[in-house]
Each structure stands twice: as structure tokens, then as C-alpha cells.
Design a protein around this nucleic acid. Structure first.
Lengths: 216, 216
DNA sequence: AAGATTTCCAACTGAACGGTTGTAATCGAA
DNA sequence: TTCGATTACAACCGTTCAGTTGGAAATCTT
């Protein structure tokens, strides 16, 4: 059989993504990644380097694919809420990212903040989000975006807290829908408040979705 | 020298708390806990059982002490915001809890939700929070409480995201203050909205802090 | 088709790891 | 002061881990 390097790389990256998402950096097992990929583990070291380099590759890949999959559309508080809602949906269908993000925060805190590529990625994201709420201060936009990212990513990770707080008697789908609605409402309220704070944004606040879309 | 069982237990529990908070369940090292406590590791197994039993003990202890340290006081949206703010302060001074909470969510997701003692702990917490916002539906209260817990706990864990989004040029203390203000504002807005939704809560919404305090 | 290069893997290494055991020191009660 | 029970620890055990090596098979180059 012919060698297919890209295929083995992809197999390894997929297996690594699942493994890191499930077990984190310390808990992930190189042997398990290799076995699930059906590839010898020595390939990992040749293609991706050490364990934590592989982790960084996995996370970077996932973040990029999310930004493509969930674009920011339109403008105004409703658009911001809509963006948060779609991000929520995306992270429910694929809990990989939320878990990876929190694993990173817990296991690699400092070193992640120093990554130049990551800084650029987030700069672009804040910039895009600012276009969603025209006139809003950069710091305000970043703060709101952080709230969104936090709320949207935390839920799949803290699912047990939800069950514990709301009560396990409610069906999972209902709790999920309630959570989604709550997050969208939160973001809309915050976006309105931010617009009201912005220069020239002291009119009633809602329904300002006329400007052209940003992406998609 | 005389034996002092309580002292060695406390030393072990303190060391374990620090170790689990720092490295999580899989990353924590029993040898390191024993060494930092200045106690032989065999004692751990005698007093606390296996690694994950020790983890559960650590988390339970920490949660109980937080509930005592940060009581819910007064009533109304401002009181809810104040509670969130004090919780934030507490978690900043002592990032142990936030980290442990997310470690648990990531590493023990399912098994944590089944814990009866934890369910009771959270039931009491929701009940207390409901007294903070009289008239608000239990589900609404739980939802808002989850938002608070999420926002307040996530920040110490996702500190690197904050630095990445807001920009590392801002001083850490400034970013922390901005985040605190943002969270307090969020909670107040949400509490007002919840009260407005509640039966008989359709008056203007703010400044309803007359009822007597709940704890403290 | 010969030689150099790359892809791949089985087997290995050395250093942890979680957990146990055998034994000595100390304590409480008779 | 004896004796069983408890506390403590050093040394150990079997397993598992991340990372390496040596060489075979496939591909590329000339």
C-alpha cells in the first residue's frame, strides 16, 4: 500500500483532538491516541513533536475551524445575541472546543497567554465583534465578548452544575433550551447597555440591525 | 513526640487542596501531596481512601467553607449584584474553588452530578438565592445563579483569554476591576429582568432592597 | 535499477506512577 | 508494666507512562 502522509496526519490529529478533549493534557495518553488512529505512536513525535506541542496544534486547528463555522452576521444587540446563540449551538453539537479551552486555562494558563498566533486570532475576533456593535469602545466590546465566550463555553463543561442547580428532573433538552435563551437574553441586555454607553448611542437602544453584515 | 492525628489530616488535606487545584485529578501526584504535607503517603490511603475519594473530600470541604465566607445579604437586584461581586472577590483571593469546580466538570462530569450531598448543597443555595429576589420563579433563580457561578468561577481559570482579548498591555489589576464591574452589572440587569417577569414585579424594577437580610 | 530518502512499526528504556506491605514507634487501657 | 491497637514510615511492587531506537518496507531521484 502506498504511503499517505496527509491521511495519517489527519487520523492522528483527529484521535488527538478526541483524546485531549476527553482527558486533557495530563490525562491524555499518547499510546491511546496512536491506537485509536491506527498508527504507530512514533509518528506523533515525527509529525507533531512532544505532547504539549500536539495539544497546541489541536487547539489552534479547532479554534480556526470554529471561527469559520460560526460567523458574525449583521449588527445591533439582536445580532450579538444571535451570534452567542449560534456559538452555543455549535458548542453543544461539538463539546470539543469548550473542553479544550478550559483544559488549556487550567493546565497551561501562563504559556497560552504568551502565544503570538493566539493573540492575533483574538485580536481579529474582537475587531469583528466591534463591527457588530458600531460605536462601542474596544474595551467594552472585548469585555462583552469575554462574557459571551465564558457563558457559551462553560455550559458543556459545567453540565453537572446545571443538573444540580436546576434539578435533574427537568429533561436535558429543556435545560439546554432554557440555558440558550438565558444566554441570548443576557447578551442582548449587555449589548444594549454598551450601545447606550457609547458616544451617540443614547437613543432607545434596540433594533439597529441595518448596517451590512460583517462576515457570511 | 506525641501523635496528632487531626494535625496530620489537616496537613494532608491542605496539601491535597493545593495539589488538586493546581494539577487536577489526573495531574495531581500523591507523592507530591505527601511530601508537601511532610507526611508519609501511606497516611493518605488510611485517612482519605483512593485518589478520587480524596478529591471529593477536598472539593466538599472547600465548597462548604465558601458558602460560609460569602453569605447572601439583603434583597433586590443590587443585592444580587453585590453577592456576585463578593463571590468574585473571594475567588480572586483564592482561585482554588474555581479551578476545582472546572477540574471536576472536566474530569468527573457524570459522577459529580449523581452525588446526593452535592445536590442538597445546591438546593440550599438556590433557595437562599430565591430569597434574594422575592417572587422570582425557582427555575429563573437557578438559571441566574448558574450564570453568576459561571462568570465568577470562569475568570480565574480563563485569565489568559482575558489577557488575549482585552490586551496584555492593560495592568492585571485594571482588567480584574473591569471584569468585576462587568459581572456585577450583568447580574443586576438580569435580576431586574427576572423581577420584571415575576408575578407582581412589573413595576420599574430597581431599588427593592428593603426586605430583611437572609444570612449574616 | 541503484542509491538515497522517507514512512512506518515493534520493541525497548528509564523514570514515574498509584497503591501495598512489613515493621518500628507510640498510645490507651488494664 | 504488659499488651493490643493505632500511627507512622521506608522500602517495595506491578503497571504505565512519554519518548527513543534500529531496522524493514515503500517511495523518490538520478
Amino acid at each position: 500500500m502506498a504511503w499517505d502522509v496527509e491521511r495519517t496526519k489527519r487520523l492522528l490529529l483527529d484521535a488527538a483532538t478526541a483524546e485531549f478533549s476527553e482527558h486533557g493534557l495530563a490525562g491524555a495518553r499518547i499510546d491511546r491516541i496512536a491506537a485509536n488512529a491506527g498508527v504507530n505512536k512514533e509518528r506523533i513525535y515525527q509529525y507533531f513533536g512532544k505532547k504539549d506541542e500536539l495539544f497546541a496544534t489541536v487547539l489552534g486547528t479547532q479554534l480556526r475551524s470554529t471561527m469559520d463555522a460560526v460567523p458574525m452576521i449583521g449588527a445591533g444587540p439582536a445580532a450579538a445575541g444571535d451570534y452567542a446563540g449560534r456559538l452555543f449551538d455549535h458548542h453543544i453539537a461539538e463539546a470539543t472546543i469548550p473542553r479544550l479551552v478550559f483544559w488549556e486555562g487550567l493546565e497551561r494558563g501562563e504559556s497560552a497567554a504568551a502565544d503570538a498566533a493566539r493573540a492575533e486570532y483574538h485580536r481579529v475576533k474582537v475587531e469583528g465583534f466591534q463591527k457588530l456593535l458600531p460605536g462601542v469602545d474596544r474595551r467594552d466590546a472585548a469585555e462583552l465578548l469575554l462574557t459571551i465566550v465564558t457563558l457559551v463555553n462553560a455550559w458543556p463543561v459545567l453540565g453537572h452544575l446545571d443538573a444540580l442547580l436546576v434539578g435533574a428532573d427537568d429533561a436535558a433538552a429543556d435545560r439546554r433550551a432554557a440555558r440558550r435563551a438565558s444566554i441570548v437574553q443576557t447578551v442582548e441586555l449587555l449589548a444594549e447597555a454598551a450601545l447606550r454607553r457609547s458616544p451617540g448611542g443614547d437613543r432607545s437602544g434596540a433594533d439597529r440591525r441595518d448596517p451590512p453584515g460583517v462576515q457570511g
